[in-house]
C-alpha cells in the first residue's frame, strides 16, 4: 500500500477521506478558488478574492477576502487565519460579516458555528 493511502490513518476524529490542498501563494483581488476538501493557504487572501471549500479553510496569513467553509453544508467546518479580517465569512449556510467598526484582534483566530451562530475565538489548542 503506497504512501498517502487514507486507510493507514487510524486516529479518532481524523477523516482520511477528506482531501486537503495546499496553496503556496497569495490570492489577489478577482482570483477565486473552489475545492472539494480542506484548503490551506500559505499566503494572504486579499480583499476581492474568494475561497470556497467543502471542508476547512486555513490561512497562514491575512484573510481579508471572502471565505466559505463547509460549502456542502458541513456545520462542523472551520475557518482559521493568522489574521482573520474577512469581508464576509460563511460556514455551511450561515453568512456573517465583521460588525461595523470592529478593530482586528491582531492574533490568530478561528471561526466556527456554535449554537447556530458563527463565532470567532482566539486560536487555542482545541481546534
Amino acid at each position: 500500500m503506497g504512501a498517502g493511502q487514507g486507510a493507514m490513518v487510524q486516529i479518532p476524529g481524523v477523516r482520511p477521506e477528506r482531501k486537503t490542498i495546499l496553496i503556496e501563494r497569495t490570492l489577489r483581488s478577482g482570483q477565486s478558488l473552489f475545492y472539494d476538501g480542506n484548503v490551506v493557504i500559505l499566503g494572504d487572501v486579499n480583499p476581492g478574492a474568494e475561497v470556497t471549500a467543502t471542508g476547512d479553510v486555513i490561512v497562514i496569513g491575512t484573510l481579508r477576502g471572502t471565505v466559505h467553509a463547509g460549502a456542502g453544508g458541513d456545520e462542523g467546518a472551520l475557518v482559521v487565519a493568522f489574521r482573520l479580517e474577512p469581508t464576509q465569512l460563511r460556514i455551511a449556510n450561515h453568512v456573517s460579516r465583521p460588525p461595523e467598526g470592529m478593530t482586528p484582534s491582531g492574533q490568530p483566530e478561528v471561526a466556527r458555528i456554535k449554537d447556530g451562530m458563527v463565532i470567532i475565538e482566539a486560536l487555542g489548542f482545541r481546534l
Binding site: R28, S29, G30, Q31, N46, P47, G48
Partner: peptide
C-alpha cells in the same frame, strides 16, 4: 488599491 491588486494578479 483593490484594482492594483487585481492587476498584479493578472500580470503574474
Amino acid at each position: 488599491v483593490r484594482d492594483a491588486d487585481r492587476v498584479i494578479g493578472l500580470l503574474e
